[in-house]
Design a protein around this nucleic acid. Structure first.
Lengths: 341, 341
DNA sequence: CTGTTAGCGCGTTCAG
DNA sequence: CTGAACGCGCTAACAG
């Protein structure tokens, strides 16, 4: 194989110094047009390519950023990553992806690994509260940007959606379309985003003077099965509602399937709203009403914050961006029958 | 902020040389247990962390690999990447992702960028034939592993699925379940994988003595709309078949929706098979029969090949792995009515 | 306008 | 067992 050529090789060949070569290659001043042209020409001939590793070591900037997510094979996360990649691409950043599977220790390991790799920023969707590690990242002055889920750290930027508002909008729509007994399939209430969706649900009930019934709130994890079980649960208790707001699309799908098997008409007898706008919600014969979390925009926004922090030198600006979710009306809910207040 | 501590800092503090520190940190021989312990202790106290950039520059290995895909927000690609990440994780490699949007020039740019970043390997799913660039990668002795789609380059490894076999299996199943007039929604026939699927379809027809009718082959791109249009096309020509083998899941879905709107019974009147096992195919009320391409395994296998090449030092071994696809039977096809030959 | 040289942080000969 | 010194490839400060 042919060894990679360096600026020394081309300097030797031309009998000039490496500084001159560097100047020519990097379009720096203080060099005659003639020698510059010559350097550029022979560099091309020798198939010279800059070793970014050396540049990184010298400059202290690796032009790599790390993105930490639970998993990458999910529409939401891969789309956020897409957004980050697209926004950072013009600035020649590479994005390194890390999966944690929601494991606290794995998350910790990945953060350390990225730090060791000298990434210029870390984007993270966490549910693990590795506060100490986040502080360490910040201490080293590498920008830390939370997305989707965030923590209480004041000094880190974040991009999230207003989950409370999402829960509120979903519930309000069900009420406005005539539903009066609304169940909620909640995620793990220890996780802030699910807590917020639940609180939005509560608030909407309050605002429209509908009594809260805790028996109608069922904790479900992100799976089709849990949605089915939740419906079975309601049926067995003989408290089937006229609407379900599921904080998780997959659980909404399970609920719909279970209801259809039971012969219930959707949305006439029971309306269903999911959350996240997973691709399948659009493709169903009975497409599912759900909440758009704008993952692409979320990724781009997060990248944008990082870029702004770069510009502002050391006066690091913290931004807490909260995106507004969007209710996407489809076939599992009825038309609005009440004037929107 | 506190500056990152280096081996010089800890050497100074202990009044030893950096060589000693390095030896202690890297568990090398020729060092007394006592000083080693001391170094390790103070390194921890000073929150020392290895700068992988320096290690990389020194060793010539960055511990980064690049993965180039058309887009990352697709189930297939994100799952392949997941497989690569999981397989390489234990060996402390980071994976850098690049998107090309199938643009030839973007692909070229990304390859160069990865090379400049000194990645230890490049994994790529291409449809662009940047042969010259691939050769350059190989010349620099960085392993190049194609997955999903490959080229004719002899000296690069690849992991693909047997698309011909996939097309054959799908068509054969339709025939065995009693279908006699089978349409094919093909992708772009200039792309090898689609060409192969088509050829598998042809071969199955031949093997079972069914006449080939080119009017039943319709070129569709990867979208729901194109599947709908293809069905409309067949109906308008009055040559509606009793089965459709679509080389693309999305087109299969479009076909199903159009057929259902037209009041046709699936699979009784018309069977449909897709290709790729996109997540939505499983979730539909009428779940879609399709072909599993084993993306996770594909990623892991590709990573495995890279690891093997590392072990074998310079005697680089080329591997061309072809995975066998799997027919996943669901509700859009009928039971087998004929003994499988 | 050009060349010399000193690091960036680390691993690794080679002496001792 | 330990230390001095070099080099990975590049940029930048300083001299000329």
């Amino acid at each position: 194989m042919q060894r990679k050529s360096t600026i020394y090789d081309i300097a030797a060949k031309l009998n000039v110094s490496v500084a001159t070569v560097s100047r020519a290659l990097n379009d720096k001043p203080n060099i005659s047009a003639k020698t510059k042209k010559l350097v550029l020409k022979t560099a091309a001939e020798m198939h010279y390519e800059q070793n970014l590793l050396a540049v990184a070591l010298k400059s202290g900037r690796s032009q790599n950023v790390g993105v930490i997510v639970p998993r990458i094979d999910s529409y939401f996360f891969s789309t956020v990553i897409k957004g980050i990649e697209e926004a950072l691409n013009p600035y020649h950043y590479n994005v390194i992806i890390c999966q944690t599977y929601r494991d606290k220790n794995t998350e910790l390991t990945k953060i350390e690994a990225l730090l060791n790799s000298q990434v210029d920023a870390i984007f993270i969707s966490t549910s693990n509260d590795n506060e100490a590690a986040y502080e360490r990242v910040l201490e080293k002055n590498v920008p830390l940007i939370f997305f989707d889920r965030t923590t209480d750290i004041e000094t880190a930027s974040s991009v999230t959606i207003n989950d409370f508002e999402g829960g509120y909008q979903a519930t309000k729509h069900l009420i406005n379309s005539g539903c009066k007994k609304i169940a909620h399939f909640s995620g793990d209430q220890n996780i802030p985003i699910f807590r917020e969706r639940f609180l939005g649900y509560r608030k909407a009930l309050d605002d429209f003077a509908i009594d809260y019934n805790e028996n109608l709130v069922i904790k479900t994890r992100s799976s089709l099965e849990e949605g089915k079980n939740a419906v079975k649960n309601l049926i067995s208790q003989n408290i089937l509602p006229d609407a379900i707001f599921s904080a998780i699309d997959y659980a909404a799908l399970g609920a719909i399937q279970e209801l259809q098997e039971g012969g219930y008409k959707i949305p006439e007898e029971i309306s269903v709203i999911g959350f996240s706008n997973e691709p399948f919600t659009k493709f169903m014969e009975l497409s599912i009403t759900t909440i758009n979390q704008f993952p692409l925009e979320m990724g781009k926004m997060a990248a944008q914050i990082f870029l702004e922090q770069l510009d502002s030198a050391d006066a690091k600006i913290i931004k807490k961006v909260v995106l507004n979710p969007e209710l996407i009306l489809r076939k599992t809910t009825k038309e609005i029958s009440v004037i929107d207040k």
